[in-house]
Each structure stands twice: as structure tokens, then as C-alpha cells.
């Protein structure tokens, strides 16, 4: 699985961090999402998929 985050679209809701804290974090200065792991292992796939589904800005891309 390959993950991308579009920081221009991101609205800093932080829901990706709640769904997959090993894969996403937030910038200190404005809460915009940062990708910690662009190719997360299979056991984190559900969390990442959920993060993408609830992202209000549709800023998370997933390639299987």
C-alpha cells in the first residue's frame, strides 16, 4: 500500500492521526497532516483506509 497526503487540501482535522497514528502526524505550527510512513505494512491498512474515508478534505490518496 502506498499513501499520499495533499497538504494543500488538508484542513488539519487530525482524524487520520486518530485512525492511524503510526502513519500520520500533524505539523506543530498549524496541524496540517504529515506522512510518517508512505508504505505502511499490511496490518495498518485498515486504519489507513479509515483515515482516507473520514478525511473531510479528501486529502489522503491510497494505491494498493
Amino acid at each position: 500500500m502506498k499513501v499520499t497526503v495533499d497538504q494543500d487540501k488538508c484542513v488539519a482535522s487530525g482524524q487520520c492521526v486518530v485512525a492511524a497514528p503510526e502513519v500520520f502526524d500533524q505539523r506543530d505550527e498549524d496541524g496540517i497532516a504529515v506522512l510518517l510512513d508512505a508504505e505502511p505494512p499490511a496490518e495498518r491498512a485498515d486504519g489507513v483506509r479509515h483515515a482516507a474515508a473520514v478525511c473531510p478534505a479528501l486529502a489522503i490518496g491510497i494505491q494498493d
Binding site: 484542513v11 488539519a12 487530525g14 492521526v17 500533524q26 506543530d28 505550527e29 498549524d30 496541524g31 496540517i32
Partner: peptide, 17 residues
């Protein structure tokens, strides 16, 4: 909207909350 909103997003980041 984004310019103004991003001025107040940091305190609502998950770790800060």
C-alpha cells in the same frame, strides 16, 4: 477561508487536545 482557518488550527491538533 483557508488563510484564516489555518491561523487557529494548531491548538486543535490531536496531540494538543
Amino acid at each position: 477561508h483557508a488563510r484564516l482557518r489555518r491561523m487557529v488550527t494548531a491548538p486543535f491538533a490531536i496531540k494538543r487536545v
